[in-house]
Write a protein that binds this DNA or RNA. Structure first.
Lengths: 336, 336
DNA sequence: AAAGCGGATGTTATCGATAACATTTCTGGA
DNA sequence: TCCAGAAATGTTATCGATAACATCCGCTTT
């Protein structure tokens, strides 16, 4: 429709509808005091011209844009990538655009730079996927009046936060292995400075202690299949290891291969449970028992917390915990 | 530093530096006609106040923001997720923010909606990750004067495009298997409406024909391990199948499991080559020979094309093709 | 019938930057 | 020494929306 030189502005709509631009603004923002008839006329003019409000102008005068900034680690890890994608969908449905700002490392200065970039844009709110404690420190950079929600952050910070219940997930995994008859369960964790890792370690340890089982030494790794493999080579040589719970599915993959190479059969000799339920986990050899995280739910919860903060000024620090779900497959059946 | 009520504006800087706000603007935009001494004074004032330009104001007056929109399928597939992440990094280094707009399906109306959202934001340019032909149609929605770069789009469109050389990758994979002594190579492709799939099919078929090898029926699937498994169950029962080239690593994973279940050894009985080189491919059972795509290079190339278009108006439709690399591992060694 | 009131609408100021034009200050030759 | 022309800087208009205030109108109330 915009055959003209530039796209129509509010005054163009106003002229066509025979009202002032302010009335157009009122219609757009659903102000109560507009006569129904006028509203209809304005709407018609908007449609006819194909008018769309200039967000830059709005942002300039209100000091706030219809933009939500996301701070995430530059990562192709399944969790964060899925989270971002889900969040964008949810935000779009609510009329918000999402600006991503990824960082290579979650250190103070990188985060500070990304937050600054977002502040430049006058984002209406910020979502921080803060897997590590170092990310939480970057709090200081964020102005107090800007709505912020953390995903996977520090549960004790008292800040609005959405997270998967890592402890419960780890408990379910460990419990499952104990119930299947194993004397104890070994755990290969993610990096210990990640909150996710910490929660999973805690759940694993608690469950063992409650069951009176011996707690084996903690093996910590990064999240990669490579480190899983390396750790697996060691575990494969230890006949007393019959049950392994890993902090994610890719670690489990590496371990499965190491066990396979050493001739230790899964689940006959060793049972393995992962975490995440990546789409291909069902096709590992053997199919992986794992803990599924509802990333979509987390993303939607984060958005709703954020929108809540943006509405009421009295942002009662709210925390939402999403329960995980154990998916049982062959690598760790109910009974060996 | 901003203890005051609101963040400092250009006039505040101007007052402190003892110049007009226009001179501040000139310093910010690197205009040539500013005395060195003045420039220094302004820079000092900027630093002292912690001033940062208001992008909304700039966007309003120039009609264009420092924002690049990305249109992508809502996807946690390794390729697209990596691409987005890499692109954001590159854009940030160049001073641009990235707004993501993901769609569930790459159909005309979804894309149109996302493009509209981006236009609302007055994006300075658009990157479309257009894996399928249907995405290309959405061209029509994009104003002619907006810089656009396609990633993985239609090579014949004549539009600026960056893509991995799928044909070359498939040729290398197929060639590798033929050189290892296989009579022919079976191919499990991705969805046939994806450009990636089409290129890989073409490279596979060409190589077989040139070698005088029989071309087996094409097996097409989606990108999932699940379909790889299903297809693999069929292939595993066919003794004449000794070499399989799959369109991505997850398909290969499913096939590996199916072969394993049927007792067909890899690579002794059957060789398998994937595509993508996901980080965990080296830890499949056995480690997967695959074709690595340099997503980082693609992202940076896309950005540079886009910036080029934004500078010169005469956007000579440029196309960049990034070569892939064959990574040889155990699933398909050089000699069986 | 006049006053008062609230609903509906219009007018003007404003946000913070760049664009366009105006003005002042340097230069280097004639 | 003076002047043209360029370099450096300043002034004012502008982008397109919302905020704040002003006005108009119709209705109730006394």
């Amino acid at each position: 429709m915009d055959k003209g030189s530039r796209s129509p502005a509010m005054t163009d709509v106003a002229r066509l509808a025979g009202v002032s631009h302010q009335t157009v603004s009122r219609v757009l923002n659903d102000h109560p005091n507009v006569k129904e008839q006028t509203r209809i006329r304005v709407r018609a003019a908007i449609a006819e011209l194909g008018y769309r409000p200039n967000r830059a102008a709005r942002a300039l005068v209100t000091g706030r844009s219809q933009l939500i900034g996301v701070v995430a680690r530059n990562s192709t890890l399944f969790g964060p990538a899925t989270m971002l994608s889900e969040f964008e969908q949810a935000a779009a449905d609510a009329g918000f655009a999402v600006s991503v700002g990824s960082v290579r490392e979650l250190d103070r200065s990188s985060i500070s730079a990304v937050v600054d970039r977002h502040l430049d844009q006058r984002v209406a709110g910020l979502v921080v996927i803060a897997n590590t404690a170092s990310a939480t420190e970057a709090l200081a950079e964020i102005p107090g009046d800007l709505p912020v929600v953390f995903i996977d952050g520090d549960p004790d910070s008292g800040r609005p936060l959405v997270t998967v219940d890592q402890v419960a997930g780890a408990r379910a995994a460990t419990r499952h292995l104990l119930d299947a008859g194993h004397e104890t369960v070994w755990h290969v964790s993610g990096p210990t400075d990640w909150f996710d890792s910490a929660g999973r370690i805690q759940g694993w340890r608690q469950t063992l202690e409650e069951a009176g089982a011996e707690v084996p030494p903690l093996l910590s790794a990064d999240w990669s299949a490579a480190e899983g493999y390396r750790t697996g080579q060691m575990l494969a040589r230890m006949p007393e290891v019959t049950a392994i719970f890993t902090a994610n599915d890719h670690l489990a993959l590496g371990i499965l291969r190491a066990l396979h190479e050493r001739g230790r059969r899964v689940p006959h000799d060793v049972s393995v449970v992962g975490f995440d339920d990546v789409p291909e986990a069902a096709y590992f050899i053997p199919p992986l028992t794992t803990v599924r995280q509802a990333f979509g739910d987390v993303a939607r919860a984060a958005l709703s917390l954020l929108l809540g903060q943006m509405r009421d000024e009295n942002g009662t620090a709210n925390q939402i915990v999403v329960p995980p779900q154990l998916i049982v497959r062959e690598s760790a059946p109910r009974r060996v």
